[in-house]
Design a protein around this nucleic acid. Sequence first.
RNA 1: GCCGGCGUGGUGGAACUGGCAGACACCCGGGACUUAAAAUCCCGUAUCCGCAAGGAUGUACGGGUUCGACCCCCGUCGCCGGCACCA
Length: 841
Amino acid sequence: MKYDFTAIEKKWQERWEREKCYAAVNGSEKPKYYALVEFPYPSGDGLHVGHPRPYTALDIVARKRRMQGYNVLFPMGFDAFGLPTENYAIKNHMHLHDVTKKNIARFTSQLKMLGYSFDWDRVVDTTDPDYYKWTQWIFLQLFKNGLAYKTSMPVNWCTSCKCVLANEEVVNGVCERCGSEVIRREKSQWMLAITKYAQRLIDDLDGVDFIERVKIQQKNWIGRSTGAEVDFDTTAGDKMRIFTTRPDTLFGATYMVMSPEHALLKKWAPLLKNIDEVEAYAAAAAKKSDFERTELAKEKTGVCLDGVRAVNPVTGGEIPIFISDYVLATYGTGCIMAVPGHDDRDWDFAKVFGLPIIEVVKGGNVEEAAFTDCETGIMVNSGFLNGLSVEDAKVKIIQWLKDKGIGEPKVNFKLRDWVFSRQRYWGEPIPLVWCDKCGWVPVDESELPLRLPDVESYETTDDGESPLSAMTEWVNTICPHCGGPARRETDTMPQWAGSSWYFLRYMDPHNHDALASPEALKYWGQVDWYNGGMEHTTLHLLYSRFWHKFLYDIGVVPYSEPYAKRTSHGMILGMNPHNFDNLPEEERNALVAQYGSEKAARKYLVEKYGEMANQQIVKMSKSLGNVVNPTDVVDTYGADTLRLYIMFIGDFEKAAPWSDTAVKGCKRFLDKVWNLCEAPKPGDRPAHEASLHRTVKKVGDDIEEMKFNTAIAAMMTLVNELGEGGANRAEVNVLLRLLSPFAPHICEELWEMNGFEGLCSMQPWPEYDESKMVESEKQIAVQVGGKLKTTVVVPTDATDEQMVAAALADEKIKHIGEGMELVRSIVVKNKLVNLIFKPKA
RNA sequence: GCCGGCGUGGUGGAACUGGCAGACACCCGGGACUUAAAAUCCCGUAUCCGCAAGGAUGUACGGGUUCGACCCCCGUCGCCGGCACCA
């Protein structure tokens, strides 16, 4: 019989669905295991070939755990709010609910086509009012606990679309949609005080099993720095408070810099002789876009205040105060002490303005560059700090500042509060009401969900307000507090809201009284293994950790970290059709003929398509036409082949290029498996026992370490080996169970054909016996002076002496050793013998 | 600039904790089967020399440690990702 994957896959998918065999059971007696993948944004394009990589990986883990006897929760859902759908609906004059419904239906059928063992009864959809009721509820708790507040801040504003854009929608300073200029515009925004959790978000990383690069990236993003705050007296009488990470260099502070927005400037205006110049500089700085302020002008500019000077607290000397836009208003205290000898930026600034540079840490040459090393330097020109190391000097100066009452240790973070409102329709309405008398008042919890009203148009209004603001009937309401007239908040939440807690809803998705019952939350506990993209490390992953900690603090969830383990997959890339080496031979030849040489042809491609023409492998994109559609692959080769190939393609954590031809190798492998298992041979072949046990161990271990590619390679090796004489029923039985998590459909079919009991995917995971893995003889390497010369076969239990004797008995070694004396031999058990000879005296 | 990762055949990639580099595949070449093609099967496939036996070279580059280095150390070059005037 032929391997008819289309019929087989349909048959088993229907049966799994009918029998609900992958359903998770709340409160089961079995040990629980919660495997999670990031739920997709159901775009109109359908599934991309990048999606199956993480899904297949964790499906393999989930299926293995089930076979190991766990009660597995492996859910799927849809993060369906968001701009692309909204824009699509606007453009095509469609209703958002319809578009979303259609997209979700398409994603669902595509996912089912791939044979994932999701529990389809637990699907969540962030746009479902039964779901966003609880998103809104969490927001209200944040508000009630003082962690949500509204403040005015600059936002991205597209001058042509007349609407607010998220940072992600601004590409190189222009609007992603229309290409027009994006400017900064002051708008009132809802903020979430994630900074209050900064320290815990760093500290608690120590207790979770996240891959290292995720931890590092989160730590860098939160950006903790320790140092001190110090008060400088000024000739105006006010104190200037600064933050520094290098209080040890206080003796080297030769000037001060404050941000152009600093509040003291207003106060000092009457004292400043050059107030016009100062104000002009501040006005110019305010007008600069972020792009201009950071990307372009790295060269230092500023204005020296004429009329107020500061006093260095250790030297007592008067030093000038500058304003400059290299000092940020939003970090630290908005002003700094400048130590040009030991800070690169201060050094640049001092060179531009001809300010004195004093060396206070010995080790470099401050005339040529700032010396910023904290490890090796010794304090000089620093009074009572002289001779100390940087580390000791920090301790001593902080104590001194404390004693004098002019400074104290301080920790600062780069992390900013989370801008939480969008002037858009397709998001969760913010359940707050503005009352002129009572201020912001929360909607009563019994009124949740606060539903999105139907609107005529989804477009943002001309003045940049959410389309909801035009719904007067919806907007005008009654204050829940005083009963007077009030207006609803018309901003909606960002896409990150619904995804910040969705993993909790999976535990109890149909609960009407709580986001999930306390029993369900306790039973399922932390997500045991969460895999997702690196691009979410400082967004979704950080946001959801923040929300979870908050929910823990108010007693909703019983543990403070949501995910026990976090891993991340690499992207699937495509061929660049504009790269010379990727062109069909005829086109290459034509180009070479046209431009005279290969070099010229390449140059032409770069001129035509830009620098990216040099890249052979690039991100898949519609405009390049290199997108691979997973359903096409399923049609041609079957879901099992796609699953296998996407796991075999390379290191799971690294980016890998899709190859249409390489897929065939996996199809061939499944054909071999089919032929091997279709009609097992009778009898025993003990020769295969060791490799069977070794493969069972290898595949099991590799799955745990995300080395899916080598797990598959090991099974290929086994099948090649078994294929030589044919496999018997016992071998087929083990092989099918081993392969089942990777290629579940074909294994179910062959399992049934062989008359084995039940579903293959519900069988116990195969076990191995370490003692049966060793062969009686082993081939070992024989080196002479560290160079491989030959191999010999020795019994596995051979002693070191026996191994050396066997090596010396080899003809080739005998030949080499003629006239030589063996001076040393190194033996690695069951691996090699290394012989060191020297000429006989 | 800072932080992180990486550099292995024609290609994707293997190699445990320092122990036979190139597993497993793709491509390619040769052969079998076929009227033919596809599919399938068998053989070969790091490079160089050699008919062969065999020998030499080889994990970006230059050094070092070691009986032994893709792996550890020092330096250089290149690529990818993130952050970017955060004091």
